[in-house]
Each structure stands twice: as C-alpha cells, then as structure tokens.
Design a protein around this nucleic acid. Sequence first.
RNA 1: GGGGAGAUACCAAAGUGGCCAACUGGGGCAGACUGUAAAUCUGUUGUCUGAAGACUUCGUAGGUUCGAAUCCUGCUCUCCCCA
Length: 302
Amino acid sequence: MKNRLIVLPGPTGAGKTEFAIELASRLGCSIISCDSRQFYREMKIGTAAPDEQQLARVRHHFVSFLSITDYYSISLFERDVLALLPSLFAENPVAVMTGGSMLYMDAVCRGMDDIPDTDPDVRSKYAGIYEREGIAALRMAVKMVDPEYYARADLHNPRRLLRALEITESTGRPYSSFLTATVRERDFSILKAGLTRERSELHSIIDSRVNRMMEQGLEQEAASLIGYRHLNALRTVGYREMFSYLDGTITREEAVSLIKRNTRRYARRQMTWWNRDREITWFDASQKELMFSWIENRLKEQ
RNA sequence: GGGGAGAUACCAAAGUGGCCAACUGGGGCAGACUGUAAAUCUGUUGUCUGAAGACUUCGUAGGUUCGAAUCCUGCUCUCCCCA
C-alpha cells in the first residue's frame, strides 16, 4: 500500500489549524505545516500559529523552526519535506499537510524546476537598477537577454523581472530555459481536501481573529521585531501595519482595520490560486464530519 | 428666530451647460503567479448584453435650453455661525 499525504488547503480563517489537529489525531499521524510565516519562531501572535496546547496534541513539523534572520525558500521547503516524509511514513502510512502557502504546497505536491542558486551580487545589482531607473529598465534588460520570457512575463511586476534577470545573469542561461513546468513523480500518493467557508463568514472570523491578536499582544510582538522590519519574513500582514502604527504614520484603529482588510485580500488570493486546482475536493467548514468520512473512505479505497 | 454652506454611484470626493455613465482614492469583485509568495502584479466596479449598443442615474418636484450633475424656482434633509 502506497503512503499517503493528505493535503488540506484553505483560506486563512477557515479553521485549518484546529481541523488538521482533529484529523491527525484521529489518524494518529503528524502534521506538516505549510505556512511560510508560521515557520518563524519570533512571529507567533501575528501569524496565528498553533499554540502550546495545540502543539501538544499532535506533533507538528515546520512550525517555529526558523529565525526571521534565516534564509529559506520554497525549494528548500520542498527538499526538507521530501526528506522528512520517509521517517513519518515509517511510523504511519498517512501524513497531513496543511497551511495557506499555496506555492509551497504545490512545490511539495508537484515539484519545482531545478534552478541554480543565484549570485547575491547580481541580485543587488538589478535591485539597484530598478530603484534608480524604474521598471522600464528591467523590461528592456529582460527583452535583451531572454526574449522568450519577455513575451510571456508580467511586465508590470518587478519581482518577476528581477528574478528572470538574476537567474539569466547568474547562470549564463535564459531564465525561460529552466522553466519546464514538469510535474515530479512522488513515491507517495496525494489526497487533496480543501476547507473553506462562505465569504461573509470568513470575513467575520478574520475580524475577530485580528481583534484577538491585538488582545494577545500583537503590538508588543511587532515592537520587539521592528528592528528587523527590512527582512522579508516581516513583510507580512499584521506586522507591516503595526510598524506603521509604531512609526506614528497611522492610528492604532487604522492599523487594525488595515490588517483586517489585507487579511481578507490574502484569503481571496488564496482562493484564486486553488480554484484552478481541480484535484481539490472542497468542503465547507460546517461539513466537518462529512469531510472526515470522505477522507477516511478514500484512505480505505486504496 | 436670523445668517451661511451643502446634498453626486457602496463610501469619500472631483465635476459647475455638450468631450459625463460621470476624474480620483478607498472598499468590493475577478484574475495572474516556478525560489524569502501573508510577497509581487493586473483587470473590473449603474442596469441589460458576447459585443456593437440600448436603457435608467448626480436629494426631490417642476422650469429654462437644441442639450443640464452643472442655470432658475418650490420642497425635504444635513451641517456651521449668530440668537
């Protein structure tokens, strides 16, 4: 019998954390967290990371295992999860992966193309060009070195253009030549069950969750991290807005409502991403038992 | 009781005779996404339609005009100042 990874995507606020814990305890397996901000041990409140009690109920992996100053990436996550799974499957043929980081999830399920690491100097060189000369300069450069990518790139998006340029220059090969979109074979099978809620319900959960974060001390947590605000890990909903408040740019109330708004937007982007993944079977949060039995039946089938 | 200001689409706010279905911002909705992705970026937002287009909008009722969100009059409401 083939090992199984149960993948549980869902927008922020749908209730994945608690749901996954219940599922994993029923199955007696552990949880792989796929949340790119809960990775960081310094960011607990603002990321709604599972608390001590929740962590005690089921063994979690990839929660609070990094410092905000560590370098990490999607491909490292893919590598680390694939390296961990055999030991999990040795104990139980099933594992649960849940979280809201869409591309990280896809990296585990489908794999990323092999692209060499880039030269940090090249990266900062192009970042400087972008700062001084704007996006038009990036476009022109991409057009020169990788016309194929230029033809299909999002020419408004500096992140995409910068990435293409740094890869092309670091490797001496056009970025587009690395992009094969090959789906990797995995030696385990994947079952995708998504957890969602009605939009309006999701919004009110998000609102109350943000209020709770404030009660739990998001302000203090952000204040303790403000010296690291330039780090990518802190370019995160909840922290950025609190930094603006701590700067005195906006009021506390404004910060709170911006956090709510930006969390809503994040949830929407998540759904946009997953909507095109036909492998996901969706369940409303109110159909918990139905979802459990669906999963258990599928597990028996094999 | 007297004087003044204003009512514009979900909200805020421009427009002060035709180029206005109406600038802009917010919010909403939708989309993209191959390496720090809770990031980064795009579109759309009166109704009907695939589209061309048609139809109804700028507090309300009238009027002026070839033509009004824009001008005039009555009414309703809001705000400010003086009593």
